[in-house]
Nucleic acid binder design. Structure first.
Lengths: 74, 74
DNA sequence: TTTGAATGTAAAATAAACTTGACATGATGT
DNA sequence: ACATCATGTCAAGTTTATTTTACATTCAAA
């Protein structure tokens, strides 16, 4: 229950821009691969701190990686 | 231990722009007052979802309310 | 001087994020 | 055929966010 209202572009970014594996991203931001899997699947939304680190890993502002609602920022 | 690396401008925003009480903000974003207190004190960083809701309550982009590191965005 | 708002603080409980470890699958290459 | 790498999944455990309850303080208003 209790829908997750936060979405993200992690998977897309990982492939398109950065050719990164789940494990590599996980290492880069300091979590386990399972966490990345869960986030890509939309199981839950990360802590704000982790969100910042992931955005940083992609060199993007947080709001270009994560969005609120079903509003993929364009 | 384990420093919190995420900072915010909640208190400032609450006073300056919006004349909002802790309770009002809490209600508006759907948490308890204690949560707001803890965030203002920097006890921990919120979930990404809550961060989005708070930013929304102020009508600001997330990164103008929360910042990573000791970098109050300008 | 009492009453009521706004805030600070703090402990115990629940929920959500995150870890650890393990096993399964499909693809790729040898 | 075997090995490896990237991914998916699942259960149990730890840590962190959030709630609930409760009490103390300051200040302004009646």
């Amino acid at each position: 229950m209790s829908k997750n209202l936060v979405g993200n572009h992690i998977r897309k970014l990982r492939f398109n821009h950065h050719e990164m594996t789940q494990q590599q991203l996980a290492d880069k931001v300091g979590v386990t691969r399972q966490t990345i899997v869960a986030l890509e699947k939309g199981n839950y939304s990360p802590s704000l701190e982790l969100a910042f680190r992931i955005a940083l890993a992609f060199g993007l502002p947080l709001e270009e990686v994560f969005f609120y609602g079903d509003h993929p920022k364009e």
